[in-house]
Structures are given as C-alpha cells and as structure tokens.
Design a protein around this nucleic acid. Structure first.
Lengths: 248, 248
DNA sequence: CGGGATCTTGACGACGATCAAACTTGGTGG
DNA sequence: CCACCAAGTTTGATCGTCGTCAAGATCCCG
C-alpha cells in the first residue's frame, strides 16, 4: 500500500544488517496512510514523520520518565524495553520486533513508562504527535488507533500475567519462542528460522528465570527434536508439540 | 463534587451490606461531572447512566467475549475478573474494589476481555457508551479519559509482571495486601482494617501460588506481628516492614 | 588475535506445589 | 434456631523444580 522504498532521502548510510519490514506490514502503516505518506510530495509538513533513522546496537532510543513527544515503529532490527531498577538488575518488560510500535503507552501519561535499547543495529520511523495538528489530519483517528493499541496491549499483558505466573520454565520458554516466531511471521520477517537477538540472560530476566535455566531448557528442547539451535538462530521443528507444551 | 446521595430513585431495596463509596471518590466521577449529573434534572437523556444497581454475591456482571456496550463503576462491594479456562481452573486477572471502574478495556476491542463476578453483595453504576452521543456531550473527553485509564492499566500490569515474575511468595503476598489496602484507602473505604472479600484460593490463583502457601504466609506474617488476622479481616500493624518485604 | 562477555553443563539446596487430614465457616433446610 | 453439609482454611510431611554457585567452553568485538 504505502511503499516508501524510494523517495526517502534519509539514512543512506544505514549500517543495519537486518532486512527491513515492508511498510504494508508495519504497525505504523495505518497512520502513514491517514497522512497520505504514499505520495512522496504530499502536503504534509516536514518533520512530523521522520523515516528510517539508524539506531546502533546498544543505543538507547528513549529513557523511562522522559517526556513523551513521539512514538516509533521498528523498520529493521529489534529492541528491548526495560524498567531500570535502582539497586538491582534492570527488569525487562518486553521486546519490540520489526514492524512493531514502541512508546505508544507514553501517550496516556505523557511520559515513557520504560527505557528502550537496541539489541542490534536497527532503524526506526518516528512520529511526532505534537506537530500532528499542523497536518490538518484528524487527531481523532490517531486517538482511536491508540485506544485500540492500548487495548491490545492490556489484553496481551493480562494473558502474559495469567500464563507467566502459573507456568513452568518449559512452558514459559516454549510460549516465548512461539510468540517471537509468530510476531516475525506476521510481519513477513520469518524465513525458516528466526534470530533471537536478545541474550539468554535477557530472556530469563523477561520470563522470570535464571539464564542457566533458559540454556538448559533450550538444549532439552533440541534433544527432543522440537527445535534446532545454532547460537542465536532457532528453527522450529515440531510446532505442534511446542504449542502443546506452552498451553500446559 | 457530584453528589447523588439524594434524588436517586433506583435500588431502594439494595441488600448490599457494604458502605458505598462517595461519588467524589469514584473513578466514574469525572465522567459524571462531564454529563452534569450533579443536577438531578439535567438535560441528559434517561438511560445513559444507570446508578446503583444491586449485584448479588456470586452473580456475573458480564462474561468474556460478550459485546461491549457499557462499563461499570463499583459503588459498593467488590468483584473478581477472570478468564475462564476450558480444561483448567479459571485464571483470575484482577480484583475491582469500591470506586473503581470495570470493563473499560472492552472499549478497545468491542468485547469484554474477561468475565466479572461479585465477591459479595455489591452495587454498581453503569454507563452506556452507545447512547452517549445523544447526550450532546463530547465523546472526545470520554475517549481522553479512557486513554488515560488504559495507560494506567498498562503501567500497572507492567509493574505487576515485573514484580510477580521475580518475587517470592512472601513478597507477592505482602505486595498484594498493601495494594488492596492502598486502593481502599484512596477511595476512603479503609477504616483501621480492611476485608479481603476474596478467598485464599482466589488470592493464590491471582498471585500464582497455592492456597496453602497463602495461608501459611498469612499466619507467618501474623506471628511476626506484621498484621492481625480475623478470617477475612486484616489489620496492618507494621506497614514499614511489609513494604520492605514487598520491595524485596 | 586476544580478552571479556556470554553460554553450557554440573552439583547442591531452598522454596513452594502437592497430597493428606483435621478443623472452621457459612449457607440451607428441617 | 439448630443441625447439617459443602466449601474454605489451616497445618503437616514429602518431593520436584528451579535458583545459586562454580568451572569450563565458546563467541564476539575491537
């Protein structure tokens, strides 16, 4: 639909290795469509939507409690969202993959509720909400979209709570792998295998497990022929059994 | 502000024992204010806001996947929200106390994402969104309010995930008691002690613990002089230590 | 190519689930 | 009003899962 593969004059020196998600598969696309960004020279003022900014591995996109002025879509790469803890290790609260939005939750309170850091060399599109009225487009539609997104987020988190709290390590990890796989598949970013760009420690932190446990379960799954592992690459070999495990 | 203690011609035969939350302490109050419900004979059409409906203990307010047409505020009593599981026990995803809203998450998807059942004889106010345009009031303001609420919900759930997943039984239970206490206090519904209207099993289900563990930790806390228990009543005796425990 | 971070695998122990039994509570009907 | 029964609560004993500590292997980045 709204393809921008040409006509983008930014970020030519993008060093990201990862494939880019197609605009039509991107979570920001509905809003881009409203803004009529399919036309390279639409009447929309400059600076509302900044496309394809490079973010290097380890770089911070924004920090918790920073003022919310924009939200992002992942064009390529991946990110982790985390709540910095004072005395402890950071608590990871989510991962953002290609095509997914980042930071919309900040719209509600006016501040980002978590920090976000790139897991690999990545790129993002950024939408500045404060300048949206200038576009002459309806803020109402964006609001509707945000309500929908927040609703989905709430639903997802409730599922997550429901499952995390009651599930064993194997169930959590099976569910995690399937979740990542499906999210990438949905954006047409999954070949046969997918790359888990986050560390075992990150996965464990997110799922409430020790990194050793993550490692152990990974090898156990591989030994049972459920998946094939090569460092950060994963190939699912028995989807049905993995689903059965994750659903307890 | 918008007090309705008189002029309400409904539910005189309300059997709820519980004290009612004051309108000024109710989560629906901002919306009631917009609707100018403070005036007994405002121009607002009948049937948009239905006040103080009795809900008997064990009665279901709405079921998961039912079409969203309205949301509720708890006027008195308490409710549990749960996702019915096919083969297993239901998964409890939250509790709703006096003054709190129920069902706003359904606004996003158009369907309630969970079922809600009364834990005791209770009463609710119900706001029908489909008839709101008739009121001539701005749907926009309600939308803003909903975005804010959903944002808070997301933030709360993320905190919950962050904590639940890594915390021990004692930490979870200390946090749970403090959460309930503060929520009731905020609505001016906490005397010295509060009533935990849900069963030990419900608490355990919600926190991902066996009911026996909940029971054990309760007695342990009592023996340490952190709180006093009398069946479902709880008096907090050492807030500081409970906080210290919950914060790990 | 080197060194620090990450990953894997093993041994051990603690926390909490499960099973089991006694006791209490609250709701129902005689 | 009391007896009864089902549901909920408490407490004990046992066992499995997973966190912790530790050592070695491997990888990745500069």
């Amino acid at each position: 639909m709204a393809s921008i593969q040409s006509g983008c004059n930014r970020c030519d020196k993008l060093t990201a290795r990862g494939r880019e998600v197609e605009c039509e598969d991107c979570g920001l696309d509905p809003i881009c469509a409203v803004l009529e960004y399919s036309e390279p020279e639409s009447g929309v003022p400059e600076g509302i939507l900044v496309r394809r900014q490079a973010v290097k591995r380890g770089e911070t996109l924004f920090r918790r409690d920073q003022k919310f002025i924009s939200f992002f879509a992942v064009k390529s790469g991946s990110f982790k969202a985390f709540v910095p803890q004072q005395d402890e290790l950071d608590q990871i609260v989510g991962f953002h993959l290609a095509g997914e939005l980042i930071g919309t939750e900040g719209m509600a309170s006016g501040h980002y509720p978590y920090s976000v850091r790139a897991l690999e060399n990545s790129s993002v599109c950024e939408l500045f909400l404060d300048r949206l009225p200038e576009s002459g487009k309806a803020l109402d539609e964006v609001q509707q979209a945000v309500i929908k997104l927040l609703g989905q987020e709430v639903a997802f988190n409730r599922e997550l709570i429901a499952s995390l709290v009651h599930q064993s390590a194997e169930q959590r990890i099976a569910g995690f792998i399937l979740d990542i796989f499906r999210r990438l598949e949905r954006r047409k970013m999954a070949e046969q295998g997918v790359t888990l760009t986050m560390s075992r420690g990150d996965i464990g932190n997110y799922l409430g497990l020790a990194s050793e446990t993550v490692s152990r379960v990974f090898t156990k799954f591989q030994n049972r022929g459920l998946l094939k592992l090569d460092h950060k690459m994963v190939w699912i070999q028995d989807l049905a059994v993995l689903e059965a495990i994750s659903k307890q």
